[in-house]
Design a protein around this nucleic acid. Structure first.
Lengths: 225, 225
DNA sequence: GATGATCTCCCCAGAACTGGGGATAACGCA
DNA sequence: TGCGTTATCCCCAGTTCTGGGGAGATCATC
């Protein structure tokens, strides 16, 4: 796969690529982690755990199609820290690049990025092709990486539990949730209790965030209507 | 957008399209719902709330790249009920089709599908193009659907507040947070209180989710380490 | 030197949540 | 028919959170 990626990267006129799930532990179970970036940068990336705060990764969590790194501020607003991360990457030899996000509900977020050497320009006419290649490359890597699946699936909630958790996420009290769903407060307490048990957490706040993270509820459930 | 989609659909040799978030309530706040399917089928789809159980939708939740409907059983295993749904769609005038999933963490799942009339064949050489068009069409629709957003500028938290909220999001109690940050429990209570005030919310659960939503804290803050 | 923002700490009353223990009824599956 | 799952309801003791009220210290800015 690495060889193939290297070849494609070169053919499209790029210098580096990264086909990764956004986690820090590279030897993690079945996560994809195929990189050809300047080693210097990879080390720093790992050391500072940028996998989640890196602006490019953050932006990739906000969209469905690829984007040029130079246009990242049209997706998220950059803090001073973000700018310094980008500057540092540039120093390390990464020029402009293009990142294709890869999201599947309940799975780790990932992306496929291609980068020029520092100083070189992106060829914008090629970007649709890069988008396509990135998507399929990630999907291919994902399929390969899960051939041996022992399959740890995230806990699932019953419909009622999910409804309660969505309302918990909205900051409703158990009594309010009971009113909204037309059931007793005690019942709500029970549902929330059961949901907490399934996730193995003891606080409703973490419950809500976990449920949000793996798609049992969505931001739309929280802010919708 | 409908006109544009109709044109593109035709140009690519398809008969129908559907650019949708996977929800039942079509007039929902900011969800995408642009469809040109046989009305008969749309009605039945709504009535039976297939948005969640339809095999095509289910399959689209399992992958990142588009797939031909005729190959859906390579993604999910079809039950008898699934087969009958597919057969029904065929009866209603939907032939083979191609669905491009669209997932963004924390948002509703969606997809962009194109379908032939019943009996016609997919041109497999076109599928990469369809993949590309589907992705961008969905992203465009998504962006348009949120132009009119009330546009509330998000409150910003002080560094200490953000640290406290991140730990709140991890389900820590105020006392635990105090231990972790090396400050008194009372101080933590104050920070959380101030953070709640800034967001104008009364529950820490909603505080955590709001802070997560607009990037004051990230999932990495919650699950990292 | 005043003003505002931030961080730190304290007290209290009432509301909300958590972790135990119960119970009944409906449903599908074997 | 029994077993498991789900949904509904109840009680209670103890903990945690929320919404009020304070206060002192630092720091930058005007």
């Amino acid at each position: 796969m690495s060889d193939l990626m290297a070849e494609i990267t070169k053919a499209m006129g790029f210098r580096h690529y990264a086909l990764v799930h956004h986690v820090d532990l590279k030897p993690a179970a079945r996560s994809v982690h195929i990189i050809d970036y300047p080693p210097d940068w990879v080390d720093r990336f790992q050391a500072r755990r940028l996998y989640a705060s890196d602006p490019i990764h953050r932006a990739s969590h906000r969209t469905n199609v690829g984007f040029a790194w130079s246009a990242v501020q049209s997706i998220i607003s950059l803090t001073a820290a973000d700018r310094s991360i980008l500057a540092e990457a540039y120093e390390a030899g990464l020029g402009d690049g293009f990142t294709v996000p890869a999201h599947i509900p309940g799975e780790l977020n990932g992306s496929c990025s291609f980068a020029m050497a520092a100083g070189e320009m992106l060829d914008h006419r090629q970007l649709p092709l890069v988008q396509l290649v990135g998507s399929f490359a990630f999907e291919a890597a994902r399929k390969i990486s899960r051939i041996h699946e022992p399959e740890v699936q995230c806990p699932s909630l019953t419909e009622r539990q999910a409804e309660c958790v969505a309302l918990v996420a909205r900051g409703k009290t158990d009594w309010e949730i009971g009113q909204i769903l037309g059931i007793g407060q005690e019942t709500v307490i029970q549902h929330v209790k059961d949901a907490r048990d399934r996730y193995g957490v003891t606080r409703r706040t973490l419950l809500a965030i976990r449920a949000l993270f793996d798609g049992q509820i969505s931001f739309a459930d929280v802010f919708g209507r």
